[in-house]
Amino acid sequence: MAKRIDISDLDAYYGNFLAVEDVNLAIEPRQVTAFIGPSGCGKSTLLRTLNRMHEVIPGAYVDGKVAFDGEDIYAEDVDPVNVRRLIGMVFQRPNPFPTMSIAGNVVAGLKLDRGRKVKKSEFDDIVERSLRGANLWDEVKDRLDRPGAGLSGGQQQRLCIARAIAVQPQVLLMDEPCSALDPISTLAIEDLVRELREDYTIVIVTHNMQQAARISDTTAFFNLAAVGEPGKLIEAGPTQQMFSNPANKATEDYVTGRFG
């Protein structure tokens, strides 16, 4: 599992508005890559171009190339459905399906192409494996058939992670997965990210510098000249170096908390 992503010359638009301009970035497998930068600089937009969720918004499109282990995900014959299956996503606000049980949420993606052909016992295995993978099993194993919406925010977010990894993607994209959570849940998710790093390529957007420093191997810093201007990748490198000795003045100002 776990594959690399190479972004080259990527522009992302909302209609006529250029939100992200000319990004070139390599995302290494089995590493955590963090996107940081002031709000509105296009972190979420870029993240969503990596599994073709960007184009879900009416009028939104991209220009450029995103290679998934060498294959362009924007090639003519690629179905976005396949891309999203291989590159999973966790959102800022936990969004378990309210009409499904906890177990139902976990296997929701799996049921899509396996239908009901899969044996119940196999589903049970996958539910357990995914929930364990998301460090949630012990908390919910007695109420798998209860609605997912009944869980706490942090539990819901881990359920969403379980749901995403149940389909065994290669890459996991996370858009500020802790920003709606309390500190304890945040720590739980951070631990989880460190564990998941063993098996997945992870890209995480965060506005929390300490979090980026704690959990990521590589950090990419984005910035925008002014509101209404496109966001750009300023620099990317090993997290250690980005926080101790960045090449760019703006990066330094940002990581030391002097603006943003």
Partner: peptide, 13 residues
């Protein structure tokens, strides 16, 4: 909710 729509699409629906 758009969040649920996107969650489903992101799962490869």
């Amino acid at each position: 909710p758009q969040g649920h729509v996107e969650a489903a699409l992101a799962l490869g629906a």
